[in-house]
Nucleic acid binder design. Structure first.
Length: 300
DNA sequence: ACGGATTCCTGATGGC
DNA sequence: TGCCATCAGGAATCCG
């Protein structure tokens, strides 16, 4: 599933292929893939230039430019489970059509020639959970800054101090004085608390920090939270260096798989032996997700 | 108000 | 071999 390292890898591999190109064509093969509706989406992106590609949390962001270099709004792609964004060079041959449809695209953007031939940007997604959102420039209704999911995203884990990490896990507005019973894994998966962590990297970070996924976050010591923060940074950094984790569907913009799945120590290892102590790894459901941990190495 | 459960989707997988 | 139930999960939404 595309989490922070996967989306970062897609952004990096996509940037070199599409930056500075104009969007000349918008083909929507599945209208449920886009927000807003077809006419509005087309009006927001057609003729715009892709100025820059980057990422915020698990969102892939295409920053657009209008005529005269003015802000042209943003395309935000959320890949959810099985989404892919691919850059495919145009060959100007009739075979192009077959090559594109083999990827089962939901949306195809036809991009301008930059001197080395044209390019297609494909959004494909077998499970159809993902979305491609188009936003108007500036702030105000219809701009990305007013999209609640984007506006309320928590901080980037790789641009955060240990102290700020502890602060964002602390329950906000505890006016009643009641202690939160939220599980640590539920908080890590909550994009409004911290952005970009999904099931894979939550399990991997908790394993490396020696903390059970069902531990109550409010009961963890400062020392253990600092250890968790270090584990999150370490696992995300390593995963980016390995171009992400490809379990089944994930590919970068060139269609290449990542390699961090070969370094999993917790995710998907239920019933197998712990690589640290040899105990049998357990799986349980926490925050609605399968969560795998070592009952010996990880504690509440 | 908080936190858990459900829903949306389709392909892979396992049991019989 | 074929069929059917089960599972995977991010985030919106529903519910106790």
């Amino acid at each position: 599933m595309p989490e922070l390292p996967e989306v970062e890898t897609i952004a990096r591999t996509l940037a070199g292929e599409v930056e500075s190109r104009l969007i000349l064509g918008v083909d929507v093969l599945d209208q449920s893939a886009i927000v807003p509706d077809l006419d509005a989406f087309r009006a927001l992106v057609l003729g715009r230039r892709i100025a820059r590609v980057d990422r915020r949390g698990k969102l892939l962001l295409l920053h657009l430019q209008a005529g005269g270099g003015k802000d042209g709004g943003t395309i935000a792609v959320h890949l959810r489970m099985t989404g892919r964004v691919l850059a495919l060079p145009s060959t100007k041959e009739p075979a192009d059509a077959d090559a594109l449809s083999a990827h089962r695209p939901r949306v195809i953007l036809t991009l301008s020639d930059r001197g080395q031939g044209g390019m297609f940007l494909l959004f494909a997604d077998v499970r159809r959970f993902g979305r491609m959102h188009a936003f108007a420039p500036g702030v105000g209704p219809g701009s990305i800054d007013c999209w609640p999911f984007y506006r309320d995203l928590g901080p980037e884990p790789l641009l955060l101090s240990a102290q700020d990490f502890r602060a964002c896990l602390a329950p906000s507005g505890q006016s009643s004085g009641k202690k939160s019973r939220a599980r640590i894994k539920a908080l890590l998966l909550n994009q409004g608390v911290i952005a970009g962590i999904g099931n894979i990297y939550a399990d991997e970070a908790l394993f490396r920090a020696g903390i059970r996924p069902d531990a109550v976050a409010g009961g963890l010591s400062v020392r253990r939270l600092d250890r968790l923060f270090a584990a999150i940074r370490s696992v995300l950094t390593q995963a980016i260096a390995e171009n992400g984790s490809s379990i089944r569907d994930y590919r970068d913009a060139h269609g290449d798989a990542g390699a961090f799945q070969n370094h999993f120590r917790a995710y998907g290892r239920g019933g197998e032996k712990c690589l640290d102590c040899g105990a049998v790894m357990r799986s349980m459901r926490v925050a609605g997700r399968t969560s795998t941990f070592c009952p010996h190495c990880q504690t509440s």
